[in-house]
Amino acid sequence: MTAWWRTNKLIPILTVVAAILLFWYAMAVVMNSPWQIRLNERAGAEVGFTEFVLQTYDQAKPVLPVPHQILAVIWDATVNTDINSPRSLAYHALVTLSATLWGFAFGTVLGILLAVAIIHNDASDRSLMPWIIASQTVPILAIAPMIVVGLAAFSITGLVPKAIISMYLSFFPVVVGMVKGLRAPDRLELDLMRTYNASAFQVFTKLRWPSAMPFLFASMRVGIAISLIGAVVGELSNAAGGGLGVRLLTGSYNGQTIQIWAALLLAAALAATLVGLVGVVERLVARQMGART
């Protein structure tokens, strides 16, 4: 029998979380203290160590806000604020989420279609793949404003340009993964289909597509996370529509560090949730396909 503390995963996880929090709270004191020292000098206040530390955790615009400050702001801006108010983080998160999901959905479909074209046609392999790779070497920060401004010239604003930026990022891992996945069937399986005189379409639906499923889900995990980044970057280029990116932007204009961190943490939590959801769907599909459980 292995001892419970060897098999239990909770303890190592909590240890790492505790270490991060400890480091965070320590760094907050270090980074916030110069400003706090100046404040205390101006006020002519003599404070003890404990009080000083608590002061560094309670600034309005700290260099590094501490977790409980950020969580308080998130709590206040979600639970205690009307969802339709522009001050609600939940509202902004939903704006970002919808752009993310639309971009992700179209990116995934586009990626699959490109992969299908690439594996069935040598010419499209050679003509498309270099451009697909080139598309990802250009910094998204440079392209995003052009897409936003360019579409605005046609009066297309709001969700669509952000979703396009998300799609631009998320189609790539899907293409790469699906090209590999659709080519996953080995010689034996392809020969087998040939002895049945199966059509290319039958080979695709009965062999290539099911073989590619694990690759599709691996790609989609990456794709959905960078879809969110795409949506946030799109929001940085156009502050009108709202979204977590806009909160980041206005936060940095006004030096509202807690607001920045709140938007940041929420975006990270959103990404983690979305990746987790893809994982759940993956497990359901795997079970449907008779995977070992």
């Binding site: 034996l188 020969d191 087998l192 002895t195 009965k206 062999l207 099911p210 008779g290 995977a291």
Partner: peptide
């Protein structure tokens, strides 16, 4: 479809 072919490996599709 004049013949049936059995390969070295069973080549069964795992999801079926």
């Amino acid at each position: 479809r004049a013949y049936g072919y059995v390969f070295q490996a069973s080549a069964l599709l795992p999801w079926r």
